[in-house]
Amino acid sequence: MKILVVDDFSTMRRIVRNLLVELGFSNPLIQEADDGNAALTMLKANAFDMVVTDWNMPNMTGIELLQAIRAEPKLKGLPVLMVTAENNREQIIAAAQAGVNGYIVKPFTAITLKEKLDKIFERLAASGASA
């Protein structure tokens, strides 16, 4: 599964990559982008299966990236998991309204990440089966 990890902090990109590998995802298939703009360019150029993004980033934030993904016919069905320090109600609601598939508040554990990923895949499988 090809995953794009988007965060302006290289530490966080490395941590998320580390956790994904620990959960059994293939390391070479994980790619990284340091803001929403870079991520969007990569998503348009190559097929990815999932995006794990931060909220606070320069140039293009995570919520703007999510909106751009949902507005792009080729990308709109892409699962997006938000991993962010933003935990106020309004922001969580905004992410939900923009069509986020999962929302994790930092700092988080590998178990939380696994739970959210499992839930995303369960829902996708269910919607795929009913379609």
């Binding site: 530490t11 580390n18 620990e22 700092p107 988080f108």
Partner: peptide, 19 residues
């Protein structure tokens, strides 16, 4: 070691506040 990886995410949180 897994715990140690997770603990490093505080760098990102502290960094965001500094920013």
């Amino acid at each position: 070691l897994n715990d140690m990886v997770l603990v490093q995410s505080w760098q990102d949180l502290a960094g965001q506040r500094v920013k």
